[in-house]
Design a protein around this nucleic acid. Structure first.
Lengths: 412, 412
DNA sequence: CGCTATTTGTTCAGTGGTTGAATTATTTGA
DNA sequence: TCAAATAATTCAACCACTGAACAAATAGCG
């Protein structure tokens, strides 16, 4: 199935070119070394004539550039390799979390060109105050980007909570936010490029979703399926199916933290009982490790746990084993349901992966029906802290790569 | 997002026509009354000229037909309504289960033109013997179909087990099958139309998947997202996301029966403990209701349970309440994870829905984070017994509707 | 009954984008 | 220096869609 089942709209002449622009650009992005026009023609099935025409459009629009002449290889006219432009459009990624703000800029080629983190406990601040600080950070990122010749094509903001299509944060429990209209509050900053192709200049999304996207594009292939579990104060998950993020019917998928692990376990903030969060959330782990009252900032707490576990502290080791088992039970259910082959431990779980991985794997191999045929990989996230910001910035440029015609046709 | 992210292949001139054939055909199929060419043009955004040309191709290929002249409506030249052909291609749906075989034929318009069920306990038979009987049933269906002027375009066989791409049944626990090469054994029957468009003439798939597809196409809209839970001896689920079946990375999604409900509950056949199946599988319900030794055929067992529950038998009511609660716990996890808005109780659960629904709903409203914003519907399946056969046959004709060019270009 | 208004469906020149073959460009190797 | 080889461009042909004009078929009205 390479084609969507039911076309959504009319296909006119121009759609052909739109499609082939995306096709060629996608191959340039996916190639491991700058491909020539001839190689692209062979790879896509288009004729060399068509590829030349398409590439001409892409060059004119500053989406690709011709690479430095490569060292000679054989007889014949030398090929001119094509690479993604590093002086064209770029994406701005923003993140707001309980104890830090982050901003980063990613160019078309996926390189992180700017990255800055601002640590501060944001819980005492009002949403407007917190977002004002974020606007400062964004302005600095923008200045950096334009200084390097980049054009910001859009921004994505990661929030640890439920967000609706319009960017309204319905609920961010750990920030204490409820019904915060983020785009309006953040719109005070310098304007980004206006709506491109129907997408607003600022997209607000769940932190776990964007972190999963970051993980997807950090990996080698773009067509993976995995579950990215992000263990912060709450536990969120991003679900990537066949290379694209699954958002659910209303965009609120991934609430793995409230999967029941023991239906009659301890009560949870959500109103249920025995949710995963009550066993493997950060507070639960700290409490089990006897570090409950320490009141450490969230990220420090994680590093502290890793240190103590590395030193062999028995209470911490037992706490992590318990959390890992609970996580494994929940993840086994997910893997049974969705038939995924990879589980990524991200966010606060990444540094704890050495201790969480064994119990998670044990539960999976006990409970997953198909584990015998095809093993399930459990690994820590490749991207470190603030993966969500990078993922968000990446999502902006991926949107351009997926539909370059929209960018090329933008009003200038 | 109406367009796939990364085009998979070259888009040539002909692709345009291919796409628009599918577009127009899809609108004809989705319309609630035969649309005219002019209405199609208005609805799709194509010009009337293009629609005429496309419709001409579809008429020539016997995929659509002109409807009877409709009663007059206003001034102007009368329109000629277009309907899906009922004398063109049709799909053959087959099902093999523990205690019955079924075959049915569905035409392009989705009407069931033939349906026959053969009841017999298949467990004592070898796979070859069982499939020989199914071949007989299929031959009768074919004779019926050709008698009505239909051309069988392909077949889908539903099996209660894990199936790989090649049609090899890796494991069907309740039939006692392991590594059965179904297409080879069933291939002895009269040949179907040869490979159309790269798809083999016989597709073997999981029973729960095909039942979910049947439910999808029985519904009004083609773009739904829901979980179809099929409670037979085992418990399977078909996951429909945005109008298409999600099969998982390897095609083995939906094993909801082995989601852990109580991690330290009773041991399960799969090796785990406390799986959903040990609480809400048919055997578990019968045991809890005190009907364990009765040794009823599976479908009779379900009707018996419904009778007793209807009569107010306290043991049965309690058994169903317990099963419903366990099911609700598992389903709540799924809904939290995937953000679905509908859960369909199918297979053996359909007749028991009046008693299962309340506890399932109760667990969902307790445990699903977003239930407050947007309620989750729980309803019995619209299709009755052998829904998988109908769904399978439907999947064959849907494939033609989704890609009519492949059918039109077939060698004749 | 004839005329007009109205809507449907078809015809046809025009256009955009791809195709395939021929042509030009640029290098290696004999 | 020339032939072989490979890359990229050019150009006539072609395909499918567009837009406008046209033909077909009816209702309403005098």
């Amino acid at each position: 199935m390479t084609r969507p089942d039911a076309p959504a709209g009319a296909v006119r002449q121009g759609s052909l070119r739109e499609w082939n622009l995306a096709l060629v650009l996608d191959r340039i992005a996916a190639a491991d070394r700058p491909p020539s026009r001839a190689e692209l023609a062979a790879g896509t099935g288009l004729t060399r004539a068509t590829v030349s025409a398409v590439v001409e459009d892409l060059l004119a629009g500053r989406l690709v550039a011709e690479a430095e002449p490569t060292p000679r290889t054989g007889a014949g006219r030398p090929s001119r390799g094509l690479v993604l432009a590093t002086d064209g459009p770029a994406g701005l990624g923003l993140e707001i979390n309980v104890d830090y703000l982050a901003a980063c800029v990613v160019d078309l080629a996926g390189r992180v060109r700017h990255h800055r983190v601002h640590r501060a406990d944001l819980r005492p601040l009002s949403p407007a105050e917190a977002l004002a600080r974020l606007t400062d950070l964004a302005a600095r990122a923008r200045a950096d980007a334009t200084g390097e010749g980049l054009t910001l094509a859009g921004a994505a903001l990661a929030v640890p909570g439920l967000v609706d299509d319009a960017g309204l944060v319905r609920l961010a429990p750990n920030l204490g936010w409820r019904d915060v209209p983020v785009p309006a509050l953040l719109g005070a900053g310098p304007p980004l490029t206006a709506h491109v192709d129907g997408v607003p200049p600022l997209v607000v999304d769940n932190e776990a979703n964007l972190a999963a996207l970051g993980e997807l594009h950090a990996g080698p292939t773009g067509r993976a399926s995995f579950l990215h579990v992000s263990g912060e104060v709450g536990i969120g998950a991003g679900i990537v199916l066949d290379g694209s993020l699954f958002r659910g019917a209303r965009g609120w998928s991934g609430e793995i933290g409230h999967i029941p692990v023991r239906p009659d376990g301890p009560p949870c903030r959500c109103g249920g009982r025995g949710c995963l969060e009550t066993y493997a959330g950060q507070e639960a782990i700290l409490a089990a490790a006897g570090l409950a009252g320490a009141d450490l900032p969230a990220d420090t707490a994680t590093t502290r746990l890793a240190e103590l576990a590395g030193a062999g502290d028995p209470a911490v080791l037992q706490a992590l084993a318990g959390a890992g088992t609970a996580l494994g039970v929940a993840v086994a259910g997910v893997v049974n349901l969705l038939d995924l082959d990879t589980v990524v431990l991200g966010g606060g779980y990444a540094p704890l992966a050495p201790w969480l991985r064994p119990p998670v794997l044990a539960e999976i191999s006990r409970r997953v029906l198909t584990a015998a045929w095809s093993p399930v990989t459990v690994r820590p996230a490749a991207l470190g802290a603030a993966a969500a910001a990078v993922g968000g910035a990446g999502s902006v440029v991926r949107r351009i790569l997926a539909r370059p015609a929209g960018w090329l046709a933008r009003p200038t």
